[in-house]
């Protein structure tokens, strides 16, 4: 998986994610998102290059959402593909991430 970080601190961070998100990448995604959260309150995750997301990815994102909420910040997912969006919608999580 590859990550590209844009912005910093108060202006919020946009984290671009590239690759599949399976149970294998759970930890890697978790630490990248956590690093972003410790740096900024408002996080945008660009899913343009994510074509696969399983429940492992959902767990990371739900836990990130709870952290950000506790800080009073926001976390939003951008450019999710149809398949990825379907996973969020089916589990009823899409509204949590402004999708």
């Amino acid at each position: 998986m590859e990550f590209t970080k844009k912005g910093s601190g108060n202006g919020g961070i946009t984290l671009g994610i590239k690759g599949r998100i399976t149970a294998v990448e759970e930890e890697e995604l978790g630490s990248a998102v956590n690093a972003a959260i410790s740096e900024a309150d408002n996080i945008k995750l660009d899913f343009k290059d994510v074509d696969y997301l399983s429940s492992a990815g959902l767990r990371v994102l739900v836990s990130a959402k709870k952290q950000v909420d506790a800080k009073g910040g926001t976390i939003v997912i951008l450019n999710a593909s149809k398949d990825v969006r379907e996973v969020f919608e089916m589990t009823g999580l899409s509204d949590l991430f402004g999708m």
Partner: peptide
């Protein structure tokens, strides 16, 4: 089961999907 709350247990999501 799904619900509208973000507070759900995420452990069973995979099987649910």
């Amino acid at each position: 089961k799904t619900g509208k709350s973000g507070d759900r247990k995420v452990g069973g999501l995979g099987i649910y999907i």
